[in-house]
Design a protein around this nucleic acid. Sequence first.
DNA 1: GGAAACAAAACGAATGGCCGTTTTGTTTGT
DNA 2: ACAAACAAAACGGCCATTCGTTTTGTTTCC
Lengths: 236, 236
Amino acid sequence: MIGETFCPARKTVMPKLKPETQQARRERILDAAEVCFARAGFHRCTMQDICKEAGISAGALYVYFASKEDLIAGIVERDRAKLAAELADLSKAPDLLSALARLGEHYAVEEPQYKRVLGIEIGGESTRNPNVAATFRSVDAYCRQSFEQVFERARQDGKIKPQDDSGTLSEVVSLIGDGLFWRRAVDPAFDIHKVLPVLVRMVSTLLNPIDPAVAGAVLTPPAAAADTSERSEASS
Amino acid sequence: MIGETFCPARKTVMPKLKPETQQARRERILDAAEVCFARAGFHRCTMQDICKEAGISAGALYVYFASKEDLIAGIVERDRAKLAAELADLSKAPDLLSALARLGEHYAVEEPQYKRVLGIEIGGESTRNPNVAATFRSVDAYCRQSFEQVFERARQDGKIKPQDDSGTLSEVVSLIGDGLFWRRAVDPAFDIHKVLPVLVRMVSTLLNPIDPAVAGAVLTPPAAAADTSERSEASS
DNA sequence: GGAAACAAAACGAATGGCCGTTTTGTTTGT
DNA sequence: ACAAACAAAACGGCCATTCGTTTTGTTTCC
């Protein structure tokens, strides 16, 4: 076994962790950093905090991230990438409005509190850190474009008859999403189920201002709506 | 707390700055701190930065604020108090919807950027600093109550016929306000004039879902609306 | 009225602790 | 066997706060 293999073609760098384990470590560090950053903000959170949370040493951390700045950038990229991915699924949804409502539900209810707080932290950081700003804005723009395309297709399919152009619709819906996100992050007593139906109704009048019958049709595929979002508290 | 030293007729000495100048200094420091905090965040901003911005020395600053924490609390209180005051004026407005639109216009256009960024900073801080959280939430609650009262009165006066209760209406409108605020703070390219009319229309259908004629009446006292907000660039 | 008296206000260099990062020596994976 | 991965301790800079001193403004006493 020990048989002294000196390989001829072997010279410089190679032995390492398997790239997958390497990636796993990175993710783990990011997970820990997310928690810490949300708990204390990007600032007051120390590298030592993150090390402790991740169960590693400072030396190890610096193998994977060159600096705190770099770590922050990593957090932002991962978080925003996930957001973009989840929003991309939206375009596949058959029912536009209930898909939107489900999205709101998802972000405002299922996501743990610390992720929402992290979102605020990211937005704030984007106003002063050009690096963060770049990824933040690009994802933001992508999301609004997605919305816009969805609306545009729905209109061409005759499913909606909005009086505004798709770009404006997308802006308005994004804005409502931002409001949900902010309120939910900042006010622990916020009850999304109180407002979600109203928001849906409101948006539906936007999409079909003329004919309430059509709006109703888009709004309520009755069975699905009842199951998914409207009353998840009935069971408990 | 200032002029009150008890003085036996003879010996008493209590020279000081006139309370008004004292207050002025405090305000000046708060102004400087606002700028610095917005520029760098509560964290990365140093006390020396603030001193430089205010044109005073460290020692002087600590005469007026016991600690950085204390200074942050001061900022939050002043900012929120102003918000509450401005919102209180709303109840006096004769035309509800255009008053709301004007409010949105005010916060999203006239307010300088750094104040918006400061708002994010405050919200973020409120998720972890109990002191900040207390004033933040109390003002937040006050604002929503104001909205609620305004809506309730409008309903009783027969000006609106909403199908939702005033509490819910207030939540929804607040949420839209939050969305405006966030978007405007975070996205410098955001054009509020693209969405404001749509938002107004949307809210108006909320307030008067049944009878579009009434809704139209509330929405457009035509002369006033044109002058105040809709197209301030037409005249010039 | 004006100067002495005195404390608040302001200054600004010094301090002490904290935190991001580096260095050093050991372990581990291949 | 050898470099990458890691832990642990150490370093160096920065920053909130303090403190001894100076300045400023008000009162008191002649």
